[in-house]
């Protein structure tokens, strides 16, 4: 897989998910999901609780607890599912976790540096030394209005909800992914934190980078305006539209979509 191949054929999609079916513990979560994401686009995946949004995010990042039972995922034209989680990360797939993991005893700055250098090695770039790294990280932290102290504390340990999410966006800024998947990044944030995090995300939008925002609520989308909105229900994307779809969902809830889908399914059965 070409890693630092910046000259991709224009028009080639960043991500193509075809008929993806996923199980966890014998329970079918995704049942034939289709999604295409092009460079520069921001897609929002919305849906009721339990619809499979987080499963999609984790499967794309390579979580092994999930079993892919059908379909395929192409990333920059290659088979994404064949790669280990760290290989995906080095190839530019980034997942901002809904629940960032606490790792007591490992300093945040250590993790960040280890991650950045792993990616740089993979790209054939020089590893950063401590000084270079610190100046890089300070620059990125300004963007997220983060306290220096957070660098020297254990990874996510004792961080507030907002600090954890900012830390995720900081990691994204450092790793400069081609495809960023943000899983419920807005959950647990107060309005101030939401604005800061959104500012960070918007700063990272670029024509080369695609983003997939997984969210239950519309409010994040007030700040990070998506190009496309998809509704996920019962393991499939049942409706797609522009940003106005999110507003409609906010106003009407998810119930009407489910009914609509049920009607369509019933008609199809006839």
């Amino acid at each position: 897989m070409p890693s630092n191949d910046k000259q991709r054929t224009s028009g080639e999609p960043m991500l193509v998910v075809r008929d993806l079916a996923v199980k966890v513990d014998d329970k079918q979560i995704l049942r034939g999901l289709d999604l295409t994401v092009n460079p520069g686009e921001v897609h929002a995946i919305m849906g009721p609780n339990g619809s499979g949004k987080s499963t999609l995010a984790q499967v794309l990042a390579g979580r092994e607890a999930f079993t892919v039972t059908g379909g395929e995922v192409r990333y920059q034209g290659h088979d994404l599912l064949a790669l280990a989680p760290e290989e995906r990360a080095r190839e530019g797939v980034f997942l901002a976790f809904q629940y960032p993991v606490e790792i007591p005893g490992v300093s945040n700055v250590y993790l960040l540096k280890a991650a950045v250098n792993a990616v740089r090695r993979h790209r054939g770039e020089q590893e950063l030394d401590a000084m270079e790294f610190l100046s890089l990280i300070r620059e990125k932290m300004k963007l997220l209005d983060m306290n220096d102290q957070l660098l020297f504390r254990s990874v996510n340990e004792g961080f507030s909800g907002g600090e954890k999410k900012r830390n995720e966006i900081l990691q994204m800024a450092l790793l400069e992914p081609a495809l960023a998947i943000l899983d419920e990044t807005d959950s647990g944030l107060d309005i101030d934190a939401l604005q800061v995090v959104s500012k960070g995300i918007n700063a990272l939008r670029s024509p080369e980078r695609a983003m997939v925002l997984v969210t239950h609520y519309q409010r994040l989308l007030d700040y990070v305006v998506p190009d496309f909105v998809h509704v996920l229900a019962h393991g499939r994307i049942v409706k797609s539209g522009g940003k106005e779809l999110a507003l409609e969902l906010e106003a009407r809830g998810y119930g009407w979509i489910e009914q609509e889908t049920a009607r369509e399914t019933a008609q199809a059965a006839k």
Binding site: A61, G62, R63, E64, A65, A84, P85, E86, R88, A89, R90, F94, L95, F97, P100, V101, I103, L111, A114, A115, A118, V119, H122, Q171, L175
Partner: peptide
Amino acid sequence: DETALFYLRSRAIDP
């Protein structure tokens, strides 16, 4: 912890 391992791997760190 498997989740912590996955977290680190998703940050490009080898297993």
